[in-house]
Each structure stands twice: as C-alpha cells, then as structure tokens.
Design a protein around this nucleic acid. Structure first.
Lengths: 347, 347
DNA sequence: CTGAAAGCGCTTACAG
DNA sequence: CTGAAAGCGCTTACAG
C-alpha cells in the first residue's frame, strides 16, 4: 500500500504555522522563534517529511547533487580498484552534506561533454568532478563557458581556470627510480598507462628524467591501456629483449600483477631475477605472492578532498588548487637487489 | 563567462508557438503538427535546450533517476570487480533511456532504509535497486509500504512482493562440486561469504547438499567477509587441518587469489596439490599464475537486466521475477585431479 | 516574529 | 491543431 508523501503544507497545518515558516525552520534561517522551529522540526520528523528535491531545485536552491562521468569500459572500471575507492571517498563526503552523487558512464570525451551540457541544461547537478585529464582537454573550456562548477582531479597543468586536486606524480616516480637504483638496478623499464592521459605523461617524463640523472641506460617506457592483457604483453616484450630489465615499474596494480604472472611463466623468480613495483597500491598488491612493492595513497581521502573542494566552489567560495599527499612507496616482497650476473659490467 | 540556461519559454518564443506546444513536441505527444514538431525540435537543438529535471519532476513527471545504495566499505567495493561491473551495466541501460543513477554508500541496513525513505520523500528517485538480500530483509517491507518501485537483485526467496532478477546459484555450486568430484576430488572445502547474505546461504546449502549426494566426507564451509585477508586466513586454517582438502571453492575471486598465494607460501603447488575454483569470474582470475578456474557470468548484463526491469516497474508494468543465466564454470589452470597420495583409500 | 503571495520551469487538462 | 491557465512544492522577498 503506497503511502502518501507529506508536503510542506502538511507540516505547516499540523504545526499551526505558514508554509513559509516551515521553510525557514527547515533551512535554519532567521524568521522563526526557537520554540516554533523546534515544534516544526518535531512535526516534520514525526510525519517523516523530506522536502521535495525537485521543488527545492526549482525554486532557486541547488539540485543538491554532484555529477561524475567516467570514461572507461565496464571491465576496466571493475578491475581497477582506483575508481571505486575514489567514488567511495567522494560519496562519503557528499552524503555527509546530504548531496547526492549522479554517476554516468561515457564512451569518449565528446559523450562526456554532451553529458555535462545536458546536466547543466537540466540543472540536474550543481557541479561536476572531472577525471582523467588529457592534454588540451576539451572538457575544460566547455565547463568554463557554461559556468558549471567543476573540480579537476588531476593536474596541476592543463586545468585552465578550474580548481583542482592533484598529487605530485613526478616525485613519486622519481622516488621509485631512486629506490631501485639504490638497490643496484641499472636497467629499469616502465609500463605506462594511456599516453593521452596527462598524469601518465607526467609520470613518463619524470621516469625518463630520473633515469637520465642517475645515468641509467635505456629508460624504456612501453605504453598500455591499464588492462592486464596489455600489461602482460608489455612485460613479455620487455623480458624477451636482449638487454632485459632487472626491474619494471607499472603504472597501476593490475598490470603489475599481470607482469608478475608473466615473469613466473617465463621462469623468472620475483624478486630474485626481476623486481616489480606497482604504480597503484590496493589490497590486490597484498593478495599475490610475492606481495607487491607499490606506490600507494589514500584514494578515498583523495576523492573526499575533491568533493569538499567542489562543494566549496558550489558554495561560491574562491577555491585554489589543493595538493594532496604524494603516493608513498610501500616496500613488500617484489623488490630486491638485481641478480649479479645480469648487472652491467663497468666499462 | 557563465551562459544563461535557455528555458522552454525561449524555445517557444523562437519557434513562435506556446510553451504547451513545445512541451508536447518534446514529449512526442499528439497536439502538434509534424511540421511544428520538427521546427520546435530544431530550435531546441539549436539553442542547446534541455528541460529542467526539477521542473519536470515537480510537474508530476518522474525524477528520471534511479537509486542504488551500497552497503560495503570503500575497500571492499574497490577490490570486488562485481559491484563496479554491476553498476556499469545498470548505468548503461539507464543512460540509454536518459535516466540518471544516484549512488549512495551506507554503513548498515538501517542507514540504507533511511536513505530509501529520504529518496522517496524527496522524490529524488523513481525507484531503487536492492542488492545483498538478507534473510528477513527489513528493506523489503519498507519499500512495499512506501510503494517505491524497487527491484531486488537476488532471490528468488525473500523478495516479498518485489520483483527480482536472480540466477541459480545453487545450480552453479552443484556444477562445481560435480566437476571437482569427477576429477577425483573427495575432500572439497568451501570458503563462503557473509552468512547473513541470502545468496551466500543458498550456495552454502547447495554445497552441503551436493557433497552429501556424492557421498563426500566432511563438506567443510568456512565463512568470511569476502576480503583477501579472511580468504587467506580461512585457507591457512583449511590447509593446516589434518584431513587437508584437495580442492577449495571460494565465494568470490579476491578470496580465491588470496588462497592461491597462501597455498604457494605453504609450498603447495596449484593445481597439483590443491585445486582452486573462484566463485566469481573477473579479469583478475586470468591475471594470476596459474589462472583460476572460475564461475563466471556477464555481470554488466545482469545489472542491465535489473535496470530494465526497474524501468518497467516505474512505467507501471506488471513485472515478474526474471531468471538470468546461471554462472558457468570456465576451466583454467587452477584445477586438476587430486594428488594420488593424499586421496582417501577405499575402505 | 509571522502570513500571504509571487515565482522557479515545466506538464496537462481545458477551451477555442 | 493551438493557446491560456492552473498547478506541482518549495523559497524568498514583501507587508504586517
């Protein structure tokens, strides 16, 4: 038996006040005495009243919703812990402030832009979060033009006038290279992510630069799409080359796990013959044997930070870029000094 | 520079018709000539008009949104491909019909019920999807009472009058046990999920029943919370017991991977000394070495099915339970006949 | 501090 | 087929 939804008029009638007073009481605004406010709130709670989000949105208030469009396939999203952890963090922050999260999957940047335009036209969301920033990202100017509050998760470059939350990926990669070099590795390779993504490019540049500084030869980077398949394929190629690397850095956890399997199939022991570092830490890295040394950070907290910033922008605050903590290297069982036999002899 | 959002009045003015006509044209309803309809749609497209979702919702139409509350921690959600794949499937179906997905994380069933009540009161969603059905699930009577359209992902028992999408978990488990028994395994154990969850209970019962029919001794089930930690712990316990199982069935993929690592740590070769079956298939199962034999199904399609059903309920259709395909066993490298030495001698 | 009223942008009977 | 108008449930100036 469907229940009838109470409206603000029901509350007003039962409390013996006008609808306006109920609204003021609910919004915590002046205009009602403390006693009246209490009575109104009690009545509202008693009859289980919630204000219609549609009516609130229509009368000029906000939609109380934030949008997130994700441009990855179902399979990639499923297997990458990163996004779900990010979403969890975002959502926790939003729901604490009674904001809803509206999620949409898109297939490409054009579709995402269309979604943003539609959300804006429909007034469905008060603002959006932007992931996977690309070089000359076309979403940025559109959001600027629309005036739709937005926060970029990424950067610090390429965000236009939009505020952003970012972490220093370059530093994290350099730390990793330095650590491997300190162990004695000379031939370090990297399996990077989609080269179009700005953060992947930043990491790639940092990797090359770190290797150059340490005077390491042939800092090979192979690009991939973050899937296990491509991670495995890249690993096979690297390990079959004449100057086989003694350490490989992967841009995420899934590829690192795939790389570990490939090494094992090829009869290489990890970490004795090959060291592996996963570029994202997640519980997956502790599941495999040996467990993987990984670059980790608190992804839910990162998402929460972005959500807080977006709510501030929506609230009209002037918001600057926020730098989150950099990823930290957690040492586990997949890294060790290189085998002596395969070390490059000093010339 | 923020752009002004066009309203239906802007379209009406430019097209030289009334607002009512624009509405009819946009809704594909009779009341406008074909020529007028075309002109109106052209104008709407030209000025980038989208109807305000708030205004539509307020004037009696639907919210065009569907809600999903998830009761798992950020970490669990992140590492379990199942939920993100389910969400992807749901979302793909919804966005094809211009419905939004509103997502919220909750900590327990009370919180979830509160969210459902609030969504209903706010008219924020037109219906909800219900996951992780429990015995005597308290969400069911609440949704029935509110009359909020809902579809349960699970069952077939315990769904009350709510329609549901389910797959035959019992059959899948029985298939698995039969397969392992056919390989020659006699001591099969199972690492199950949260015993409160109805589908975990169904699988547990099916497992016990299948073992009984095949006259297998000691069909041990250890319960867990689906995390790698508990999966590893349960595996250690099972493999340390005097009558060590020669095969273990895990209720998801993450625990199976954790179990594989534990076996390797304990010096057991998979599948020579121990066979492993993962109760969920995902790309993770192909990443590890050996790859895992797994019970798989098309999870995005399952979510899509649920979404279609919910949209039908929202549309006022009488909707029955839908049975999705059962999970199918995909044979990979983690299953083989048991070691002969450890087989139970015929008495 | 309180009440009556306009208005947000749609949809939908209701007359023409 | 078309137009004028009421109404959805709120918020918020505006008088009292």
């Amino acid at each position: 038996m469907a229940v009838k939804r109470p409206t603000i008029a029901d509350v007003a009638r039962r409390a013996g006040v006008s609808k306006g007073s109920v609204s003021y009481a609910l919004n915590g605004q002046p205009g009602v005495s403390e006693a009246t406010r209490r009575r109104i709130l009690a009545v509202a709670a008693e009859i289980g009243f919630s204000r219609s989000s549609a009516a609130r949105a229509l009368s000029g208030a906000t939609a109380n919703a934030v949008g997130l469009a994700l441009c990855r396939s179902a399979r990639t999203l499923g297997i990458e812990p990163f996004f779900m952890e990010l979403i969890s963090g975002v959502e926790a922050e939003l729901s604490a402030r009674s904001y809803a999260l509206t999620l949409q999957m898109v297939t490409d940047q054009d579709a995402e832009i269309a979604v943003h335009r539609r959300w804006w036209g429909e007034r469905r969301v008060d603002g959006v979060l932007v992931c996977d920033l690309r070089a000359d990202d076309r979403r940025v100017p559109v959001l600027e033009e629309l005036g739709l509050p937005a926060v970029v998760i990424g950067g610090p470059e390429g965000t236009g006038t939009l505020p952003n939350v970012w972490s220093d990926d370059a530093a994290a990669v350099m730390d990793t290279v330095n650590y491997l070099a300190a162990l004695g590795h000379r031939r370090i390779a990297r399996v990077g992510g989609l080269p179009d993504l700005l953060h992947a490019a930043v990491r790639g540049t940092a990797f090359t630069e770190a290797c150059r500084r340490l005077d390491l030869p042939a800092a090979v980077t192979v690009s991939s799409d973050y899937t296990g398949e491509e991670g495995a394929q890249a690993t096979r190629r690297l390990l079959s080359s004449s100057a086989r690397p003694t350490a490989i850095i992967y841009d995420n956890d899934v590829m690192a796990i795939a790389g570990l399997s490939v090494a094992q199939e090829m009869g290489l022991a990890v970490p004795v013959d090959l060291s592996i570092v996963a570029g994202d830490d997640s519980p997956l890295c502790r599941l495999v044997h040996p467990s993987l040394t990984a670059l980790g950070r608190d992804t839910p907290a990162y998402g929460g930070q972005a959500a807080r910033q977006l709510l501030a922008v929506i609230g009209g605050a002037a918001v600057d870029a926020v730098q989150a903590e950099s990823a930290q290297l957690t040492l586990r069982g997949s890294t060790a000094p290189p085998p002596r036999a395969t070390g490059t002899a000093p010339s």
